[in-house]
Amino acid sequence: MKCQKCEKSATFHITELTGGKPLELHLCEEHARDYLTEAEPEQSSSTGLAGALANQLAAVGQTAEELARLDQQACPICGITFFEFRNQGRLGCPHDYVCFRKELDPLILNIHGEIEHTGKTPKRSVGSTDRQTELIRKRRELKEAISGEDYERASKLRDEIRQIETLKGDGPKGASEAK
């Protein structure tokens, strides 16, 4: 039997069932290959983070001015600006999910189709999140104080950090002893 599309002999016999009636096809290897790999018309949507984010921001219809203002917003804890996040696609600290919530929620919804966690939760109480973020902020301020040679402030911050760390009670020793 010859291929339905050329003079070569048909080595592939395909029965297409997706249409209304079953359709018999007799093709040579080359044409069978073309038939089987025929690209489907729809484009796969870009699920990349940058793409999703760009779409999201465009959808909100922000003016350049609004976008510029948004870009300058910074997290009070880690200091990352929204612009930096947009560029690198990585957040700076856990608190970003709180302080950029308005901007991040549509993005998260776009990526996951959901906005609420329904999976596992840590067994131990998470402890005070404020205290954890406070530690991140004070460590950053300490670093700034040292590089600014403000040693008086640095020593004060160091004491405060130590105090929070011992207060926590969920540190390494507390945890392993509790077990």
Partner: peptide
């Protein structure tokens, strides 16, 4: 991630 440290980028 640990709760009391910034993420790696920061």
């Amino acid at each position: 991630n640990l709760a009391d440290f910034p993420f790696i980028s920061r």
